[in-house]
Write a protein that binds this DNA or RNA. Structure first.
Lengths: 342, 342
DNA sequence: TTGTAAGCGTTATCAT
DNA sequence: ATGATAACGCTTACAA
């Protein structure tokens, strides 16, 4: 026996039983009318629709999902949303997911370590999820993957059989480094960022070294470690610029760091780019507007998110082809901070 | 009869029935152990936990939510995520929601009109939701409100019995205007933004006019309409600056518009702030780094989101006190773009 | 302390 | 074309 009383105050709204009763049909018929899953006579159809309308009935997502065995929802895990990078990515993701009729659940890790439970909780609410960068431990992902949860990684090393997207860090880093070393002829460098913290940064750092080697310039042994924040970049830059052999160019792992570096240079009375060149990554709005325009690398961030959503959709749809790993192209944006361009 | 077969390939993982069988107890006992909702003997407790561990069991959110009659999830509807404003807000919201043990579902409207269905779908997945600015039609909100869905509005006129938060647009706008008119002595103004599109802008515009009137300065009849994008601001500024009586100060509804305006001024060979003063809203990163630092208004955006989450939580928890309407204070950030400060 | 069984709101498979 | 009814996976009275 199902409850047919429509107590005022039951937040859920009407149920399919109430609609059925109101229309004088069975719940099966109501479902058929609404889902269009089997032929229904025109007259009953009208009656059902009228009842639906009258009661303001909307099927319960919970009931439906339980019966269908799917959530029609995707998850996404990211570290943060400050800075346009992740925000744009999430937006690209949401846009495609919405097109595909799926809701999006977000989970921000804020750099916390104890994310395991939150990720597992998220996993129980979605049909698949996207994981960005260094947000989730590898073993957790392997676990999820093993349980059959469709997974797409972004800006992160591949995991198990999961698909992955990233931007071409190596290529852009080499091109950038080459530009600085060859076109501008700089001979001493420092790299600001934390390769441990970010897979993207790790790739940029490696290619930076390769690029320098290829250009016959001595590469630093270690990056000057700092996190993706302006203040952190400022401090790292102060440290680098105070060395006895001051670097002629600072290659920074993202624009925030680079903007902090520019500030540090100013504080030390150094001119950018005359005394020291500075470059970043991401092409944030401030890069375009900052004092000497900031030379940087533009990434198709929105497309990253869109690709992830589409790939996830395919996997959830049953696609069992081998894991795909896509690398999207980047674009070097030359501005004044790396030196004058004739 | 419930399915006890643990077919490989069923993505859902183990069910409570399998755990019960494995531990040789009833599903009720399993539930009790996991929820800690009633005393269980130490030995059975151990057996259950062992079974849970062995099977890697995690309760299905769907089953649980259906039984409990709650989603343990909150929704948030925003227009966009470009620009730090909404991103920060969402972040503040998510952070608190996570603390309260709730997931967050997002819905970006991208300025589309046909949002009704998406919002209703969202409503069927959450226990309550937050609605930002002009994303959702009033009648839809009234509908939701009428059905008992807890609602909190942000940066938007109040709706029905819903709680609301916003920042103090009027106060900051008056102070800003007064600063320009009195401290700097400017006598001709233009306001760039679209009061139709954004409730925040509408308030800023109104208080801008009041501020001018109070200072004894003639106020423009209409804002120069433009959307919240740099390019749109640039075009609006070009239009305003080409007038016969060129305005001495451009008050812009946000920083993107203001940065576009600065660009427009440059294009016309005008100096900021010597020939024309420009101000914005939001204090985005680029405002700090742009050519003449941009005078702007800083808002406690993150707190906006946090407040909304907490209020929502209280409502969902059964709080029936009268609707609250909070206004958070803002801060004027004076930089060079509005003129020299001695 | 533990088990039985009735919901929760759908969808989908049988019959009819 | 329509109606019973069994899942779906859980929580929670109610019994024992």
């Amino acid at each position: 026996m199902k409850a047919l009383t429509s107590d005022a105050g039951d937040r859920g709204g009407a149920t399919i039983y109430q609609v059925a009763q109101h229309a004088g049909v069975s719940i099966a018929t109501v479902s058929r009318v609404l889902r269009g899953t089997a032929p229904v006579s025109e007259t009953t159809r009208a009656r059902v629709l009228a009842a639906v309308d009258h009661l303001g009935y909307r099927p319960s997502r919970l009931g439906r999902s339980l019966a269908e065995g799917r959530h029609a929802a995707y998850g996404i895990v990211f570290p943060d949303l400050s800075g346009p990078y992740f925000a744009e990515l999430v937006l690209g993701y949401e846009e495609v997911a919405a097109e595909l009729g799926c809701s999006v659940l977000i989970l921000a890790t804020h750099g916390r370590a104890a994310v395991r439970d939150k990720v597992l909780d998220l996993a129980s609410r979605v049909d698949g999820m996207v994981v960005l960068a260094r947000t989730v431990e590898d073993d957790v992902l392997a676990d999820l993957n093993g349980k059959g949860m469709p997974l797409v990684t972004v800006a992160r090393p591949a995991v198990g059989g999961a698909d992955g997207v990233r931007t071409d860090n190596a290529e852009s880093s080499r091109r950038l480094t080459e530009h600085l070393a060859v076109a501008h002829g700089y001979r001493s460098f420092a790299f600001l960022g934390d390769a441990q913290q970010s897979p993207d940064t790790a790739q940029r750092w490696e290619a930076f070294r390769e690029g320098l080697r290829a250009a016959g310039v001595a590469a630093p042994r270690q990056p000057v470690r700092c996190s993706f924040e302006e203040e952190s970049g400022r401090l790292a830059a102060l440290q680098a610029l105070r060395r006895a052999r001051r670097p002629r160019a600072l290659v920074c792992a993202n624009d925030e760091i680079a903007l902090g570096a520019v500030r540090a240079a100013e504080e030390l009375g150094l001119r950018v780019p005359e005394d020291v060149a500075v470059t970043g990554w991401d092409d944030v709005m401030a890069a375009r507007h900052s004092r000497p325009g900031l030379t940087t690398v533009r990434q198709p961030v929105r497309r990253l998110g869109a690709w992830a959503a589409r790939r996830l959709h395919a996997r959830i749809g049953g696609d069992t082809s081998p894991a795909e790993h896509v690398v999207l192209p980047t674009e070097l944006v030359l501005r004044r901070s790396c030196g004058e361009h004739p």
